[in-house]
Amino acid sequence: MTAWVGTVERTRAGIWLFFVSEVFLFGALLGMRFNLWGNTRPDLDQRLGLLVTAILLASSFFMYLAESAVAHGRRVVFLLSTLVTASLGIAFLVGVVGFEWSGHLQPTDGVYGSVFFAMTGLHALHVASGVLFIAYIGIKGLRGRYTSAEHFGVEACAIYWHFIDVVWVFLYPALYLMGTAVQA
């Protein structure tokens, strides 16, 4: 009746505004990191940090593969790629929550532990929700709900996943690389 822009365009605009808002959510935490840690950082497991970062970056490649596969109607590639993406996401969570969180640095260890757990915790919540989102599109794909023309759910999931990945690209150096390591 009115000049409707398609639902997809509207939802896409809404999602991007949501990302803008998320940038400020994480940005405030980054501000806290630079304020409280200054030119120092806690002594963390560098190999683990590099490994989980590589895993998350690799997962974005498979997410992209899943999205282009569904656009070309290649169902098997789509399903396999979502499976790989979700598995890499879970591997990232195991690395951060399972191993790094049970290291020597704990949330009650002053500003180093507090900021580290706040930042990785908020990010891990996003990764976990992203894995659930991937599982959701995987199940819908398994039931054949997506076509090469209509698969906005996959697109939304993919840009959310890439966004989480980009956030980590900023968190990783702030937590693991910048400044000199001190024993917390």
Binding site: L17, V20, S21, E22, F24, L25, G27, A28, L29, M32, L36, P107, T108, G110, V111, G113, S114, V115, F117, A118
Partner: peptide, 24 residues
């Protein structure tokens, strides 16, 4: 959209400091 998330972060950190023994 731009400012509210910063308040959310501040409030979340306040809650963590009050209930989880963290330091901000």
């Amino acid at each position: 959209v731009l400012a509210t998330p910063v308040l959310t972060t501040a409030m979340a950190l306040l809650v963590l400091e009050r209930v989880a023994g963290m330091t901000f």
